[in-house]
Design a protein around this nucleic acid. Structure first.
Lengths: 332, 332
DNA sequence: TTGTACGCGTTATCAC
DNA sequence: GTGATAACGCGTACAA
């Protein structure tokens, strides 16, 4: 590979000149479109190699009107949940020849709309993960983002891939109630979080299903530290449902430090089933969410919009109870 | 925001026409370059708003000759180490107005060169994390990637941000030897991994420093499962240094299942200090690596190359011993 | 300060 | 099968 005299990278024109053909032919050879005389094709390829020619992505994008790139907007790249969604999208998209642009709002709610818009400008479509954004802001934003698919949010007319956290929360209560627990604490996520609201809705449903069970909601958060802090606020609950596995981890650690037996004195169930859940002590019982699949399905929906022009049907995942060692029969 | 009759997005020409000014003026207003008559600027902005005009990133990139985007190539987005590097780069880059394109080779060594090349075509520069790529392939690839910075790899002439794993491994032995251990097992990472080689070099050094200590290397891997499997191969070692925290987690779990006391019977030290290390049981002693900083420094080096044209000086991080509960005095 | 006009590197539509 | 040439949408010298 040689660099051109000027020091600039070779362009299609340079190749055309050197191979004594037209730019059109070079383009055809490079893209394998149409059919070109084998002899000429060989000559062109030789020159391409010699000059180290690489098509400019920018020029291509402009000419084609597409970037073959999708954006993924997440609130926090440090969260295993969003990491896996990103990973799922990335893998699925790469199989289709698309690349992924990440945009991490770093929990800065105010920046999200602009961040998403900016991402959309550079991409053909966007996967939006914005659990805290207000419904109002969301519906304002969506029109300018299309094609777009929502993860764990709903908005009329926009394809979505969501987890049925309500069903998950309800199932968690079923599990605990079945073990004899009558006082359950829910360590709530951020109040503004949509997925927290969905869990709360599920708990509401569970209350009517289990009249004898008292379910109290304790403000907590979404991180390990939040979970650790919440250990003191458990009251007389014999079981707790954590907003997610991160919170459960923090709780478990604090409980251990405080000498509280799990599940002897308190049972704990998490949400998500992150990779480390099974390595917690005791191994964490949790409502498993297929996080990578979430990303993969989001990609599918995106592709349907991009190429098919079809707004994909909503996808709903139901969390699956994974019983490990952190839950057990209530002590009496 | 209105959509143009044709259904197409508004272009700078549409705005110019509607505002009765030239495209140049619209461009100036939109970019805040040069100074434009306030009245005209207002008029233009009004039209921009009305038409919902958004500059085309593709056209901009082509005209400017830069994309304001950097690529990050990683071998496995599922690995906390690489996730944090990505995060570090993303956050640092976004502060400078750059976006990040992710490329996950999914451990497919063969695809890495093409993946990196492809990423580079779409970006102004690339951060390459490729621990397994052969030196040969790496040096072949680098020229076509510049500006590029290497993470945990070295190659003449290319800026690098690396962790001194040799010093880390050596320090781990110091710690263990200080606790009286004389038979230490090293759970080796992938043989082709550069960072594994560096750890091995550190162990070699440690051998001469601690003549009385026997250090054996056991083929293992880089994942939790690998660590779990290795539990049976420990022999009579009283302490083990795991390739990374993931491996240590697997080992800890297997040891617990086997009823082996940690650190009573066996001490365990990991590498990286991933977030969950402190929540392992027992809390994991580990050689901490500032993973996010790694990404941030990689970005700094990239920026120096992109804008300054200066090849940044190598950055070297030394792992710090974090003593928790998984290591203790040798039993006698 | 504002407008004209050209260049950025490809792709795609035509004739040939 | 191949070659001109017009888009693609924007930035920017240069001229006015």
């Amino acid at each position: 590979m040689t660099v051109r005299p000027g020091g600039r990278a070779a362009t299609i024109l340079d190749v055309a000149l050197a191979a004594a053909v037209s730019q059109a032919t070079v383009s055809r050879v490079v893209n394998g479109k149409s059919t070109v005389d084998p002899a000429i094709a060989r000559r062109v390829l030789a020159v391409v190699d010699e000059l180290g020619y690489r098509p400019s992505a920018s020029a291509r994008n402009l000419a084609r009107g597409s970037t073959q790139t999708v954006g993924v907007v997440v609130p926090d790249l440090g969260n295993p949940m969003f990491q896996e969604v990103l990973r799922g999208v990335t893998q699925a998209a790469s199989a289709a020849g698309y690349r992924v642009l990440v945009a991490d709002s770093q929990e800065s709610l105010a920046d999200e709309p602009e961040l998403a818009t900016e991402a959309r400008r550079r991409c053909d479509a966007v996967v939006l993960v914005a659990p805290r954004m207000s419904d109002h802001e969301l519906s304002d934003l969506l029109p300018s983002l299309a094609p777009v698919v929502l993860v764990n949010r709903s908005a009329a007319g926009t394809p979505e891939v969501v987890v049925d956290y309500a069903a998950g929360a309800s199932a968690a209560v079923d599990h605990l109630a079945g073990l004899g627990h009558r006082r359950i604490a829910y360590l709530a996520g951020p109040p503004s979080s949509e997925s927290n609201r969905r869990r709360l809705a599920g708990l509401e449903r569970a209350r009517s299903l289990h009249p004898g069970v008292e379910i109290t909601s304790i403000p907590c958060g979404a991180n390990v530290e939040d979970g650790a802090r919440a250990a003191q606020a458990l009251g007389d609950a014999t079981a707790v449902i954590a907003f997610n596995d991160l919170v459960a981890f923090g709780l478990l650690a604090a409980l251990r430090d405080a000498g509280v037996a799990v599940p002897g004195t308190v049972s704990v169930v998490g949400f998500d089933d992150i990779e480390f859940a099974r390595y917690a002590t005791p191994a964490l019982t949790t409502m498993a969410v297929p996080r990578q699949l979430l990303g993969a399905r989001a990609w599918d929906a995106l592709l349907a919009e991009i190429e098919g022009g079809t707004p994909a049907a909503p996808v709903l995942f139901t969390p699956a109870l994974v019983v490990r060692a952190s839950t057990g029969e209530v002590a009496r």
